[in-house]
């Protein structure tokens, strides 16, 4: 089985039941993507699959051998990461890599003109950012510090 992660192709011998998340965490030593629920319900495992944000816990690794996976380890000093540092956009940090990957994917979606349920005129208003980021739970409740971090990364 092949997996291309952060630009590197890996050859692995994995049980076909292995999810992308478990492949990253248990087999490639890339533990930046977190497991919060293992069922698509929290967003902690968010990575970018061919540039799109996805929950890696619900993807079978075997089905994504031709894709390019980007994890938090592959985002090197991204403006979203800097924003999180400047605005204290986290507490325990467990949801953080997922939040950051999600924000990176989300900003790209905004660039492409994708709508959201917030349906604001400004696709990067606070209400829009909140709605678009709602697939990432933060039990510490660091949300109010993430919104300005993401806004800043978007150049606002």
């Amino acid at each position: 089985m092949r997996l291309t992660v952060n630009g590197t192709e890996h050859v692995l011998d994995l049980d076909p039941r292995t999810t992308l998340l478990d492949a990253l965490r248990e087999h490639l030593g890339l533990t930046g993507a977190k497991k919060g629920c293992d069922h698509g319900q929290c967003g902690a495992c968010t990575v970018l699959l061919d540039g799109r944000r996805v929950n890696s816990c619900l993807l079978l690794a075997i089905a994504h051998q031709d894709s390019h996976v980007t994890t938090i380890e592959g985002l090197d000093g991204h403006p979203v990461q800097r924003g999180f540092l400047e605005h204290d956009g986290f507490q325990c940090g467990y949801c953080t890599p997922g939040q950051i990957c999600s924000a990176v994917g989300m900003l790209d979606e905004v660039d492409r003109g994708w709508p959201s349920a917030a349906a604001d005129d400004d696709p990067l208003s606070d209400a829009e950012i909140r709605e678009r980021m709602s697939g990432n739970l933060c039990r510490c409740g660091a949300y109010p510090h993430m919104v300005p971090a993401i806004r800043q990364a978007a150049g606002r």
Partner: peptide, 21 residues
């Protein structure tokens, strides 16, 4: 003061219990 471990947390390097090799 900004959190000391901030850079580790935003880069995914911070290790939690299940993540030690």
């Amino acid at each position: 003061l900004a959190r000391i471990e901030g850079p580790e947390k935003v880069s995914g390097r911070a290790r939690y219990a299940a993540e030690y090799p």
